[in-house]
Design a protein around this nucleic acid. Structure first.
Length: 913
RNA sequence: AGACCCGUAGCUCAGUUGGUUAGAGCGCUACGUUGACAUCGUAGAGGUCAGCGGUUCGAGUCCGCUCGGGUCUACCA
């Protein structure tokens, strides 16, 4: 292939046989970027349109979830940019604390370092991780580019940037002073394999088979799936109204566990106990169960920790069991109970076990002092009221300040809020934003961005949950790095001194997968409303998951059916990848991505390419040397021919409809509309029509065609930016700087309505279809020439203007227009088709009267059936009285037309017999 | 246990506030083309809109129940 990578206006406009994406995409992207089209101007007078890109893991690689996210966001950004909005799409990456740290530790261990934490120390390990991130983050950057993302790289951010760290500590400090952040001992979700706590939302539940033990417990029978925790019980709880146990309430007894400690157990009455469940008596293990911990708090019960952070039994479990893993101890203890006659029964049942969403390992509830964000403390100033974080989160959605798409996800969101408990934000890992708290002596505490003055201070060892920093993403990315460098500035001052923040926040759309609605979207709402007094975004668009052909979520565990977006780009180009994810896309709807789907998209790209070639050839043929004129064609003004007018009217309608669907976030619909009109109206009809005279040589045809094509290209651009940009450059651009990405979005042209011609050419299309129908019904030889007599009942100008087109499309040798019906009865060698707009007589050498009769009878039956329905509706007084007048009118008109068509068909049928 | 979503042509899905004859792509069948089209065009077959009941002049669309598939949430000892 010897074609220039970048077409320019001076080249002869000959296009290759087909579009070769791999040859052009990189260069086209480079030109977009170099042109400055991606960069937003904070001082612009234009209305902004802003999207914060959900930051991928800095060390990750592009997967289908990213691809659909990028395709949708780039679509919105390109569309709004062409509309004239100051479009800003902020890209960036996330430090993904746990995922990155465990990956690097694994790498080091694979390299022979047994315990990287011990070997390297905190500083050393962090340096190691930072180096790893630095070396691998270019990968994801290049992949984001490869999809064609028109994001503003000059504003790229990273969740560990100094400015973002500044925001993190500023928010932490403010929350601490407002009493929203506190440190306290609670039962936390401990992941022994990762050696850190995780939040409630980072837990997954998996169903699995387990044993259900009922054991004798002093005077009680108590049921549990985790007998080993009973070594740390300090109470039995019963319902206060449960008469079976009334006499025991308040009493204390001792349980000597076989080969274990003797525990002292108090009987307490607690409303939370369900008398119907199990034996109605609940063994209370305050240290290893959330609910038991709460009971213990209410009754002032002691706590015994029998499971340690290493996932093994502690000394408190007794010498015999100490050091065993939880599972070993469960087996051993159950055996001892059984031997001692204390095990009443063991049953199989299925249980929902908690595992960590990162490590997929079991979560161990443990007592631990951690940092929490209170979600119930009414400490947030929100538009003149003091609300809790929960209340604000609810308020902004119910008030409509934030709209969630699909709408039903709002219910899921509210449900989540209702069940939300205080958010544990401290993690026992080293990679992340370190908790900005220093301690001295006992009890002295300092919270701030910098270490406090004086000696003896020690910083908290923990880091913050990754989601703490990503929750600030929409605005921390807009905070000015220089302003952030001032360590004394308050949060409010930071924001006030940041031009980007003032110009571009709140953002407009947050587009992401529904699987991180809680992790991230809800937390951005929580943090941003609190920190800035603004919502982070106005609309939340949640895309569906990308599924494989079996309907499974694509994942590495099923590589045989998973689609690798990078391979698709390599094989078919980024346009095909994007289109296959946009066609059929609707909020919240999962999308099955199959090879067939991509083939269909590839064909469309090919069709656009070929139509461009024909368009150009046609224009050059008509205009000759004048065809070299460049630039965005103005809407043609003095177009006369009905078919040209029809195309302009169709284009006008298309622009209107596409805009409406895009505004409604119905991206799949918009894509279908453009494709359908382009293929069906422009290619199948118009481009065929302009092959014959007089259209084929009218100057206005060239104008119409160029304008229409330029409009389609612009409408296609947000969906398939590369091929559309290439064709723009090859055929329309005035020079190398004239890029489609910057072209104005088409607007519906008011004087292109041409309603009469639009209907007229629709009648032409029906005429063509009717004659083709006759050909099929009559079983004519495909090559057989026919002669037509057309009587125009309506739309005569359009029908006459399209004479040659019809003749060509139906392969007619002659086409005559007649004023009156040419005596159907006597006309044996002819078939007649009827329509409200025309009556067409197809003359054939050897007409099959029977075939025509069958055809007419079928048409008559269809139309009579329809007429019965319409008449019944018109006879229904309720309908006439209650239905909308336009609906009634429309039915009446249709009935009239149907009646006319029926009468004509009947007359012809009579004539035949 | 609760909540939510889905069930429309062989497959993947549209169907916008209830309104005339339920659509598209892919696949299939037949025919035609190869001077825009690693093709493309034309035509065709194929649907009790999961089932039952209700509201309504009118239901794929709204309501209830049933069945089937999926997802999420939850402190069942």
């Amino acid at each position: 292939m010897s074609a220039p990578t970048t077409p320019s206006s001076s080249d002869a406009t000959s296009l290759d046989r087909y579009f070769e994406p791999t040859q052009h995409e990189r260069e086209i992207y480079r030109r977009w970027e170099a042109s400055g089209a991606f960069r937003a101007d904070a001082s612009s007078e234009r209305e902004p349109f802003v999207i914060s890109m959900p930051p991928p893991n800095a060390t990750g690689t592009l997967h289908t979830g990213h691809a659909v996210m990028l395709a949708i966001e780039d679509l919105m950004i390109r569309w709004r940019r062409m509309q004239g909005r100051e479009a800003l799409w902020v890209p960036g990456t996330d430090h993904a604390a746990i995922a990155t740290e465990s990956r690097v530790i694994q790498n080091l261990q694979d390299g022979g370092m047994a315990d990287p934490r011990a070997a390297l120390g905190r500083e050393g390990l962090i340096a190691e991780i930072a180096a790893f991130v630095e070396s691998s983050r270019d990968t994801i950057r290049h992949q984001i580019r490869a999809v064609g993302s028109s994001c503003d790289w000059s504003r790229e951010r990273y969740t560990m940037d100094p400015a973002l760290n500044r925001c993190v500590t500023a928010v932490f400090g403010k929350m601490f002073r407002d009493g929203l952040i506190y440190r306290g001992p609670r039962i936390v979700n401990w992941d022994p394999s990762l050696q850190t706590t995780v939040s409630d939302d980072e837990i997954e539940h998996v169903e699995r088979r387990a044993k259900f033990y009922t054991l004798r417990y002093g005077p009680f029978l108590v049921a549990t799936s985790r007998p080993e925790t009973k070594l740390g019980d300090t109470a039995v709880a019963v319902h206060p109204d449960d008469e079976r146990w009334a006499e025991w309430i308040g009493k204390t007894f001792e349980v000597p566990w076989p080969k274990g400690p003797t525990i002292t157990v108090r009987v307490v009455a607690d409303e939370s106990v369900d008398p119907e469940t199990g034996t109605g008596a609940l063994g209370v293990t305050p240290a290893h169960s959330q609910i038991d911990f709460e009971i213990a708090e209410r009754h002032g019960l002691p706590m015994i920790q029998v499971i340690g952070e290493d996932g093994r039994m502690t000394a408190a479990a007794g010498e015999h069991y100490a050091g065993m893993t939880v599972l070993e101890c469960r087996e051993a203890f159950a055996a001892e109970l059984d031997a001692a006659g204390l095990l009443e029964s063991v049953e199989d049942y299925s249980q929902n076990a908690s595992i960590c969403y990162r490590s997929k390992q079991p979560i161990e509830p443990l007592p631990k002092a951690q940092w929490f964000i209170s979600v119930d403390e009414p400490a947030v100033d929100w538009r003149g009221r003091k609300l809790s974080l929960k209340q604000v989160m609810r308020e902004v959605v119910t008030s409509g300040d934030i709209r969630i798409l699909p709408e039903h996800q709002e219910r899921t969101y509210f449900h989540w809020i209702d069940n939300l408990r205080d958010w544990c934000i401290s993690r026992q890992i080293w990679w992340g934003h370190r908790v900005p708290v220093w301690y001295r002596g006992d009890g002295e505490i300092y919270v701030g961005h910098r270490p406090p003055e004086g000696d003896g201070w020690r910083q908290d060892d923990d880091t913050l949950d990754t989601w703490f920093s990503s929750a600030l993403w929409t605005w921390s990315t807009l905070v000015d790095p220089e302003a952030a460098a001032d360590p004394d500035a308050s949060l409010a001052e930071l924001l006030a001194r940041s031009p980007d923040y003032r110009a571009f926040h709140p953002t407009h759309v947050m587009e992401t997968g529904y699987d991180i609605l809680f992790f991230w979207v809800a937390r951005m709402i929580l943090m941003t409303t609190y920190a800035t007094g603004e919502v982070p975004f106005e609309t939340v668009y949640l895309h569906g998951l990308i599924l494989d052909k079996h309907g499974r979520k694509m994942s590495k565990s099923h590589p045989e059916t998973a689609v690798d977006p990078l391979e698709v780009i390599e094989e078919h180009g980024a346009d095909v990848l994007r289109l296959s994810m946009l066609i059929g896309n609707a909020p919240g709807v999962d999308l099955k991505l199959t090879p067939e789907r991509m083939v269909g998209c590839k064909r469309l790209i090919n069709k656009i390419w070929n139509a461009a070639k024909l368009m150009q050839a046609t224009v050059e043929r008509i205009l000759g040397d004048d065809a070299t004129a460049r630039g965005l064609p103005a809407p043609p003004e003095n177009v006369e021919h009905p078919v040209n007018r029809w195309l302009l009217a169709r284009v006008r309608a298309l622009v209107e409809r596409v805009d409406a669907r895009l505004e409604a976030y119905a991206f799949g619909d918009a894509a279908e509309l453009v494709r359908g009109s382009f293929w069906g109206e422009l290619c199948d009809f118009y481009l065929e029509a302009v092959k014959v005279e007089p259209l084929a040589s009218e100057r206005e045809t060239a104008e119409t065609l160029r304008y229409a094509f330029a409009t389609y290209l612009r409408l296609f651009h947000p969906f398939v930016p590369f091929v559309s940009e290439y064709l723009w450059g090859a055929l329309l651009a005035t020079d190398g700087d004239d890029l489609l990405i910057r072209a104005p979005w088409p607007e519906p042209v008011e004087n292109h309505r041409f309603e009469r011609e639009a209907e007229g050419v629709a009648a032409v299309e029906r005429l063509v279809a009717a004659v083709r129908g006759v050909r099929v019904e009559q079983g004519l030889e495909p090559g057989a020439k026919i002669e037509l007599d057309v009587q125009a009942l309506d739309h005569a100008p359009s029908l006459r203007a399209a004479e040659a087109i019809v003749a060509r499309l139906v392969r007619a040798e002659a086409l005559r227009f007649v004023e009156e019906e040419a005596g159907g009865a006597s006309d044996d060698g002819a078939a007649v088709a009827v329509d409200p707009a025309f009556r067409v007589t197809v003359r054939l050498g050897a007409a099959d009267r029977e075939a025509e009769r069958r055809r007419l009878e079928k048409q008559l039956a269809d139309i009579e059936k329809r007429l019965v329905g319409l008449d019944r509706q018109l006879a229904n007084e309720n309908f006439l009285a209650k239905a909308a007048p336009t609906a009634v009118e429309s039915v009446r008109r249709n009935a009239e037309e149907a009646r006319a068509t029926r009468d004509a068909a009947r007359a012809r049928l009579d004539a035949l017999s």
